[in-house]
């Protein structure tokens, strides 16, 4: 846990710097993917910067609002931090709206954004480790991973490594058209399992024993499986294969 990077008299907050780095790398990755894979869609080509801006601003705002919602407390938005799933859940209807409810275009955008999302999220998790949030349960070993003065499971770093592995899987071994489905399934499973090892206040969604992130993980996995199975067997319009 190293919340500040000291340069002279100034303490730079490490979490904020890593979030900034994640945004820069995310944008450059998205731009590169767009340049490589988007040959036909001129709307996304023309407005990619605007789409990115709106997603960042609205995504971060709702990431904070959702964390308050999970804690049933709206007295001060942002007091519980931010949650990745809050931004992701809002990004889906937001981008459908931005792309004028064109499902083909939306799937293309999702596939273009998946590698950027994975890399940005991984860097953000390193930021979480530096800031000392999103920590795991107490353990006796691994003294190098000390958070809040205790030895804890470094769930942030485990998640960051897993995100990098998913990044390599979806960019190297998965077809472009199916990237987002693999992302939803793989990240959903990993996040669902990692939640059992988290020890910070997870909040509550439906008054059940599962954490809000686990509920959303299950929904994402089921959604991805539904899209894969439904459009494979029951429809000639194959949205699981992306834009033609």
């Amino acid at each position: 846990m190293y919340p500040y990077i000291k340069l002279g008299d100034i303490d730079f907050p490490a979490y904020n710097l890593l979030v900034g780095l994640s945004l820069i790398i995310g944008f450059k990755t998205f731009e590169k993917q767009e340049h490589t894979y988007n040959k036909n869609d001129f709307f996304i080509k023309k407005y990619k910067e605007v789409i990115f801006c709106i997603n960042i601003i609205i995504g971060f705002a709702f990431a904070a609002i959702f964390e308050n919602f999970f804690h049933r407390d709206f007295s001060r938005v942002g007091q519980y931090g931010i949650t990745f799933y809050g931004g992701l859940v809002v990004a889906i209807p937001l981008n459908l709206l931005l792309l004028n409810f064109s499902l083909n275009r939306f799937v293309l955008l999702l596939n273009l954004a998946t590698p950027a999302l994975l890399l940005s999220h991984a860097i953000g998790r390193v930021g979480c480790y530096m800031a000392g949030c999103c920590y795991g349960r107490l353990i006796s070993d691994f003294s190098v991973f000390s958070t809040l003065g205790n030895n804890r499971i470094p769930t942030q770093l485990v998640e960051a490594i897993m995100l990098i592995i998913i990044y390599f899987i979806v960019t190297k071994w998965v077809r472009f058209e199916s990237r987002y489905l693999y992302y939803f399934i793989l990240y959903g499973v990993i996040r669902f399992l990692l939640e059992f090892f988290r020890d910070d206040d997870r909040g509550n969604l439906f008054n059940i024993s599962l954490s809000p992130a686990q509920v959303i993980s299950v929904i994402l996995i089921l959604l991805a499986l539904f899209i894969r199975i439904f459009f494979k067997f029951f429809s000639s319009n194959n949205y699981s294969q992306g834009i033609s």
Partner: peptide, 15 residues
């Protein structure tokens, strides 16, 4: 501009 804009904004929050 991209680097300065984003790093400036993330540092603007604690400031």
């Amino acid at each position: 501009p991209l680097i300065m804009g984003i790093i400036g904004t993330v540092l603007n929050i604690p400031a």
